[in-house]
């Protein structure tokens, strides 16, 4: 079952700006999907059309088989949206925001109350239920929007930049939460500027630029296409100058930190052999967590297929 199927989706805004040039996108049920792209690429427009906040110019969108042109209400019932910016009434109490949202989805008051309690507890906001939303901290406001998006128990959760401006601890706990609900069967689509976030969470990815989808595939296969990976090695002893690493390209970040590029056809064993020749002892190492970022920047810059990276 396709959670989302987009065909030839086009959007031209009133001022003549063409935001989407006939994009195709498929998201299967149960997937954790990332939609990446620079600012103004068309991410929010795409999400806006899926969620009825933006009128499309042409093309088709269906959500769990419900076409938004002919079965809009059924399609809407499947979706929960966590928008990029806070869009609740800041003067309303937290509990009221959830109950009201549930009511808009046709959930009767008793059940709405139960659901509101369930999701406020899950998101750690139960203590704040009688507080006006404006009194919440930034992180709490984000969590409130997630609770609100889940109150009608949608099958597809769409998050537009969910962790923008959120501190690391909260970001990690949000990631855990999203992984948990994804494991329970909720399909998740997120847009993000944090490529690390997409890499950590998502199995499928689409990159959008200037209104076109430039790649749409599994995270693993995308990353495999990288020709080079950079490893950061933390050295046991100080190194004053860069030794000859043979076929490997490396540079000293500081006296104790060596960065080495490893080509796809090279092996880590060879690298360690070279290091051993120079009596360089490696205490620990990590992958430079910018794999996606580098590829992303190159792809956006070139506007070409990923194999040319």
């Amino acid at each position: 079952m396709k959670a989302l199927e987009i065909r030839q989706l086009t959007k031209v805004y009133a001022g003549g700006h063409q935001a989407l040039n006939g994009i195709d996108l498929d998201v299967s049920e149960g997937e954790f999907f990332a939609l990446l792209g620079p600012n103004g690429a068309g991410k929010t427009t795409t999400i806006g059309i899926i969620t009825s906040l933006v009128n499309k110019t042409a093309g088709q969108v269906s959500v769990f088989g419900y076409d938004i042109d002919t079965q809009l209400e059924a399609a809407k019932s499947q979706i929960g949206l966590v928008p990029q910016e806070f869009n609740f009434n800041v003067f309303e109490k937290v509990m009221h925001i959830l109950i009201t949202q549930a009511g808009y989805y046709g959930i009767p008051a008793k059940l709405a109350n139960e659901r509101a309690e369930k999701y406020l507890k899950k998101l750690g906001l139960w203590d704040k239920r009688n507080v006006q939303a404006r009194e919440l901290s930034g992180g709490m406001k984000r969590r409130l929007m997630i609770a609100r998006a889940l109150v009608h128990e949608p099958k597809l959760l769409i998050l537009d930049e969910p962790t923008a401006g959120v501190d690391i601890e909260l970001r990690r706990s949000m990631w855990d939460f999203l992984r948990e609900i994804n494991a329970q069967g909720i399909t998740i689509i997120l847009t993000t500027h944090y490529l690390e976030e997409a890499e950590a969470l998502c199995r499928k990815i689409a990159i959008i630029n200037q209104g076109n989808i430039i790649t749409h595939e599994g995270m693993d296969s995308l990353l495999r296409k990288l020709h080079v990976e950079t490893f950061i090695l933390y050295l046991k002893n100080e190194l004053w100058e860069l030794p000859d690493l043979g076929e490997f390209n490396g540079y000293l970040e500081n006296k104790c930190t060596l960065a080495v590029d490893v080509q796809r056809d090279q092996s880590m064993n060879d690298l360690f052999a070279v290091l051993a020749q120079h009596n360089i002892e490696v205490q620990s190492m990590r992958n430079k967590a910018n794999r996606l970022e580098e590829m992303f920047i190159k792809m956006i810059a070139k506007g070409e297929e990923v194999d040319n990276v």
Binding site: L72, K76, E85, N87, F88, N89, Y104, G106
Partner: peptide, 18 residues
């Protein structure tokens, strides 16, 4: 208008309320 201004009108637009 406040709902438009604060954008909480979106809570209604995304929901299946006619």
């Amino acid at each position: 208008f406040s709902s438009k201004f604060q954008r909480n009108i979106e809570e209604m637009i995304v929901a299946p309320i006619p």
